[in-house]
């Protein structure tokens, strides 16, 4: 049996604590211990981006991050984005722009896009492409996703104005 270690994180703004297996990944911890299944396990190799989360403001792959390294960290996932039943502009733009088909890549795409918009509120198309370069989508052909991110940026700047 693997040793259990305590893990305390702020998950989408909420203080949470669980015991996790030493040496297990954050992806396993989030899905199996914290009941947040928004990050997906696509490859467990770092190649697909479906497990992408934001840790202390930085984009990371949960499948390659050991859970216990995150003790005390703030972790953001797509399940924390809707507030009071209202979708985040990125979620709305993905929905309205048909940027999700099977939806498996969507939580990772949204995290990668959020990390970009947090830093660059009005990105160029090339900046969006660069920001999503670590995320694979087998369904959409990427165009609707890129457009949705640009649309969410536009919606954000309207709201801000």
């Amino acid at each position: 049996m693997a040793k259990k270690v305590p893990l305390q994180i702020t998950l989408n703004g909420e203080e949470r604590a669980e015991f996790v297996e030493s040496g297990s990944t954050l992806l396993t911890a989030l899905r199996d211990r914290f009941d947040d299944t928004s990050p997906k396990g696509g490859c467990n190799q770092g190649t697909c981006g479906a497990c992408t989360v934001i840790i202390d403001g930085e984009l990371r792959l949960a499948c390659l991050t050991l859970a216990e390294m995150c003790d005390g960290a703030s972790v953001q996932t797509t399940s924390g984005m809707a507030k009071g039943g209202v979708l985040h502009p990125l979620q709305r733009a993905f929905m309205e722009g048909f940027a999700a088909q099977c939806g498996f890549c969507t939580p990772g795409m949204i995290m990668a896009a959020k990390a970009l918009l947090d830093r660059v509120p009005n990105p160029s198309r090339d900046e969006v492409i660069e920001a999503l370069a670590g995320n694979i989508c087998r369904c959409t052909g990427y165009e609707p996703i890129i457009n949705a991110v640009l649309e969410a940026a536009r919606a954000n700047s309207h709201n801000a104005a």
């Binding site: 770092g46 792959l61 990668a112 970009l116 660069e130 920001a131 370069a133 670590g134 995320n135």
Partner: peptide, 9 residues
């Protein structure tokens, strides 16, 4: 090296 998340790690 890799994509944005990989470069953060």
């Amino acid at each position: 090296v890799g994509g944005p998340a990989i470069r953060n790690m």
